[in-house]
Nucleic acid binder design. Structure first.
Length: 138
DNA sequence: GCCAACGTTGGC
DNA sequence: GCCAACGTTGGC
């Protein structure tokens, strides 16, 4: 089992949109970055990821599960890009803000802090646990 | 709205 | 293949 973090601008695709999709899930389309694509290729069905709102919120707001592995992105005409499909699992009772992550010494190495622009990031098991706890889940 | 970081493009 | 110019992302 691996852990990840997926970024989205709420104005583009929000956590509420994701939740509304239910178990059907939604293809994570629109990634146009090789590093991010490579991350998605490493995902397996059953992996979990934080759903992070960039821009206005700057916080992890929920957890999604990978329900389909990387496949060609239907919104891409060049054939170069891929996407996974994820479904909402549960909301974080307390969103974990970027500020909170920065204030937590154990999370200072997170990609969220180190590799600001990457939209699909790996999360270590330890980081996963700490963010969960900070978010109000055990 | 600004700026830093960083990926991409194109000329050589 | 190098590197300058340019575009995009995302935090502030």
């Amino acid at each position: 089992m691996k852990y990840w973090l997926l970024k989205s601008e709420p104005s583009d695709w929000s956590w509420d949109d994701q939740v509304a999709k239910g178990d059907e899930g939604e293809a994570w389309t629109g990634v146009r970055n090789y590093q991010a694509r490579n991350m998605m290729r490493q995902m397996s069905v059953g992996d979990l990821a934080f759903f992070y709102h960039s821009q206005s919120d700057k916080a992890c707001v929920g957890i999604v599960e990978v329900i389909a592995p990387a496949a060609p992105d239907p919104t891409d005409e060049t054939g170069k890009w891929e996407c996974v499909t994820v479904k909402a699992v549960e909301s974080l009772p307390r969103p974990v803000t970027l500020a909170a992550v920065k204030e937590t010494p154990e999370l200072s190495e997170m990609s969220l802090v180190k590799t600001v622009r990457l939209s699909v990031q790996p999360v270590t098991e330890n980081e996963w646990r700490i963010v969960l706890r900070t978010g109000g889940l055990t």
